[in-house]
């Protein structure tokens, strides 16, 4: 599950030590925007040592490297790819399949060099430009490493020559498109951050909206956001009970050689069964 992926500033020992304890499904050790230019070297060393030590519990651990248009990205990968406790790389400003190819080749080279199983590291692609959004499906299918595509927030707004609004109108189309591209490609569409960290009601509203669109989860910048997002994504007791009833009826029908059955007066066919299975996955019961 990737309901919540928490950004941790890569040069902050306090957050790197405690960040995995707040209950998010994943953490993102950030070497990019959260780190000042003059501290890139120190953050890279610090993050590398934390990954080597590997004490992050059961969360999915990723590192956001610097973009391939910077002098830092290859050094970032060299420092983190060999470390045992790393599940994936979050790459900023991915705008085409070509960007994915460049990243994929470098990660493969380093996996070979350091004896890491080929393909172990997943890629989480941030689509932060209009071009990146338009190429979302091409990006999502450019490598078997791709685990998720994520629309940008502030960078995408800047590229669209717009500004942040209270209801996020400016990102609405990009969000819908990323969900379609991600689902078509079989990778997770994950939403961008909600930056008003004290606005709990706004966060809940936005999470309900992006869940309804089809997103699998959201990137977050504050531990307080975990509970609200999980609350929205977790199925209710009633939803779980209904899903279990549907799956039991479908199983029974299959055993009797029947196709569709009826539960509570409504027809249960394959799409309904799939949705019921997904409810149990989100509830951690499957």
């Amino acid at each position: 599950m990737r309901r919540t992926m928490l950004y941790l500033p890569g040069n902050n020992p306090n957050m790197l030590t405690k960040g995995h304890l707040f209950g998010s499904d994943g953490i993102i050790l950030d070497l990019e925007d959260a780190v000042a230019m003059v501290e890139k070297d120190a953050a890279r060393i610090l993050v590398s040592r934390y990954l080597k030590q590997g004490e992050f519990g059961n969360v999915e651990v990723t590192v956001r490297i610097n973009g391939i248009d910077t002098e830092f990205w290859k050094k970032d990968l060299e420092a983190v790819v060999p470390m045992k406790r790393l599940d994936g790389i979050r790459a900023p400003k991915v705008d085409s399949a070509e960007t994915v190819k460049i990243l994929d080749e470098e990660i493969s080279r380093l996996e070979d060099k350091y004896g890491v199983p080929q393909g172990k590291l997943k890629l989480f692609c941030l689509l932060e430009t209009a071009k990146g959004i338009l190429n979302a499906y091409e990006i999502a299918t450019a490598s078997p490493r791709i685990a998720a595509i994520i629309p940008g927030g502030e960078d995408l707004r800047a590229d669209l020559r717009t500004e942040r609004s209270m209801d996020g109108t400016e990102l609405e189309w990009a969000r819908r498109f990323v969900v379609f591209a991600g689902r078509a490609a079989g990778v997770d569409p994950l939403d961008t951050v909600f930056s008003r960290v004290t606005d709990d009601e706004g966060l809940r509203k936005e999470t309900e909206f992006i869940k309804q669109l089809g997103f699998a989860g959201k990137s977050i910048i504050h531990p307080n956001q975990v509970r609200i997002i999980h609350d929205v994504f977790n199925p209710t007791e009633a939803e779980i009970a209904k899903a279990q009833k549907i799956l039991a009826a479908a199983k029974e029908a299959a055993e009797r050689g029947q196709g569709a059955v009826t539960v509570d007066g409504k027809m249960v066919d394959m799409p309904v069964v799939k949705r019921a299975e997904y409810v149990l996955v989100r509830a951690g019961l499957a």
Binding site: P13, D41, A42, L46, R49
Partner: peptide, 17 residues
């Protein structure tokens, strides 16, 4: 209040500089 891991990282970073 730096942990060992942080102390090691800071020494390495200072040496690199």
């Amino acid at each position: 209040g730096a942990l060992d891991i942080v102390l090691g990282a800071r020494v390495e970073a200072a040496y690199g500089r």
